[in-house]
């Protein structure tokens, strides 16, 4: 393993993040605060408790997931698309690194940024709502796994994208609906039976459910299944990236 290269890519990407640190933090903190004001304080006060948890607290895990998933994808897809766009990818392709090292550098950095933001949102949430985390270790585990798996997916999108429009398209058309309909703001059990069944085809449901379980001990799907889903998703993404580098799809002529 060329660990020096992994570290170099990682730090180089993180520098980009720190260069734009204000906007990186302000926007998620602001939007989360707005969500809490609207859903937590204004509307939430009229909503009864969900599974024994106040509505404002109930949406905390969902809100964190919403931001973390969006951030992981956009960070990672931009991170690899940008070198492709400006041409600096030549250096990556001619360096003595294999696909795993490239992925660890780029995806690692993208996941770290998303994790930072996830933590910031969690801290912001404490300012607005009163809640406790029942399974802190599981919570961190889910958060980290989510960051990594969606950063992997973002990396694939970044390689696939041929222009900036496509780069925005997948997150906008696929990910945002999946996350919103994945139970960020409600429990799946609140839906009519038909939609409950349909929801089980949404992979994000398993993530949010598992993550919420680590907060409150209640879940829409068994925790084991959640863990299985996220592990499976991570493996799938890794497999696709392995194939991309093996065939040179969209990166090597």
């Amino acid at each position: 393993m060329n660990w020096t290269a992994v570290k170099s890519i990682y730090l180089f990407e993180m520098t980009r993040f720190f260069r734009t640190i204000t906007q990186s933090f302000i926007s998620p903190v602001l939007s989360t605060s707005l969500y809490f004001v609207v859903f937590g304080a204004a509307i939430g006060s009229r909503i009864q408790e969900v599974e024994g948890v106040s509505y404002a607290a109930f949406i905390v895990p969902g809100l964190i997931m919403l931001s973390v998933i969006t951030q992981s994808i956009s960070n990672a897809s931009f991170g690899i698309y940008f070198p492709k766009f400006i041409g600096t990818i030549f250096e990556l392709l001619s360096a003595p690194v294999n696909f795993l090292e490239i992925v660890m550098g780029y995806v690692g950095a993208a996941a770290t940024k998303a994790l930072f933001i996830g933590v910031i949102i969690l801290l912001t949430a404490f300012l607005f709502v009163d809640f406790e985390i029942q399974h802190p270790i599981a919570m961190v585990g889910f958060l980290v796994l989510t960051c990594i798996s969606f950063a992997l997916m973002g990396f694939i999108i970044g390689i696939w994208a041929g222009n900036f429009e496509q780069l925005q398209l997948v997150p906008l058309l696929i990910i945002t609906p999946l996350v919103f309909l994945g139970g960020s703001f409600y429990s799946i059990s609140m839906l009519p039976p038909v939609w409950q069944v349909i929801s089980h085809f949404n992979p994000v449901v398993y993530l949010i459910s598992g993550f919420r379980w680590s907060f409150f001990g209640t879940a829409d799907v068994p925790i084991g299944l959640s863990l299985f889903a996220i592990t499976g998703f991570t493996t799938l993404c890794l497999g696709v990236i392995w194939w991309i580098f093996k065939t040179g799809w969209r990166i090597r002529q």
Binding site: N2, T4, A5, K7, I86, F90, A95
Partner: peptide, 27 residues
Amino acid sequence: LVPQEINLEPFEKVQNTVKFSRGLFGQ
């Protein structure tokens, strides 16, 4: 390799990008 096209990160500092290349090659 010095490519024909000027492919560089526009917002990066000169010495950072040079140091990055060294690291990328495992040095």
